[in-house]
């Protein structure tokens, strides 16, 4: 399939491969470096890669895009995000100057692009962690069998692998459509939420340590919350069994 917006498709591929090889913060830097405005909560709170404020060109605040020069951004403590190389910031406009940021993106288009690019990052992260999880499961035993050989575990690994393969194709399909449909993208994020949790549980309690690499999936959930948020009103929050 040919991407309708090749610049977004290129960015998505770079973000996915960067996240897979170098982690969440590195993947997010790709998005920030591409000049996309960073989304914030209603009160201007968001997460960004540590030390990248100089690279941010604009912010999505309440549905409009505000240039970085028109805001003050103050760092807030967030210990879990910090372990993954991110910092929490609160962004506030300095006055009434809400001129659009350079470029021709509307707030809606930018939000749509961000949701797609974060999807690419999450696919890269969960692929990285699934590979790590299978290695972990290969090194542990129960009832004389390696955990990776147990049927319950194999089922979980298969489901996660299938979701990754399907997710990669869905991402291509979204990039090939004239406008990424929000319900589709939100549905893909919801599926990744379930895959994230499945992969997290493969590490057992060791994955609940802050020092463990799988924390990237926890922090990725927070970034999704701040950068993408809930589905639009015509796509209700999906409540399904994990």
């Amino acid at each position: 399939m040919t991407a309708v917006r090749p610049e977004v498709a290129d960015c998505a591929e770079l973000a996915r491969t960067t996240a897979r090889s170098a982690g969440l913060a590195a993947g997010l830097r790709v998005i920030v470096g591409a000049g996309l405005p960073v989304p914030c909560s209603r009160n201007g709170i968001t997460l960004v890669p540590a030390g990248c404020l100089g690279d941010v060109r604009g912010w999505q605040l309440g549905g409009i895009i505000v240039p970085h020069g028109s805001v003050t951004a103050s760092a807030r403590s967030h210990p879990l995000a910090a372990t993954e190389g991110l910092e929490m910031v609160r962004v506030a406009t300095t006055g009434l100057d809400h001129r659009p940021a350079p470029g021709d993106r509307t707030g809606q288009q930018a939000a749509s692009d961000i949701a797609v690019l974060l999807l690419a990052i999450r696919l890269g992260l969960v692929a990285r962690m699934l590979a790590r999880a299978t290695k972990h499961l290969s090194g542990r035993q129960a009832d004389g069998q390696r955990l990776v050989e147990l049927q319950l575990m194999r089922g979980a690994i298969a489901d996660a692998a299938a979701a990754l393969e399907a997710g990669a194709d869905e991402l291509c399909a979204v990039l090939a459509s004239p406008a990424a449909e929000a319900p589709v993208v939100h549905g893909m994020h919801a599926r990744l939420d379930r895959v994230d949790w499945s992969v997290i549980t493969m590490f057992g309690a060791s994955g609940y340590l802050r020092e463990h690499d799988v924390r990237c999936l926890y922090v990725g959930h927070l970034v999704h919350d701040a950068w993408v948020g809930p589905p639009p009103p015509d796509a209700p929050v999906q409540f399904e069994e994990p």
Binding site: P39, C40, S41, R42, N43, I45, T46, L47, H78, M88, D193, W197, H221, L222, D225, A226, W227, V228, G229, P230, P231, V237, Q238, F239
Partner: peptide
């Protein structure tokens, strides 16, 4: 994981 979304984008940070 999902109910906070009813409070809008960034609810977990807010």
């Amino acid at each position: 994981g999902r109910l906070p979304a009813l409070l809008g984008r960034g609810a977990l940070l807010e």
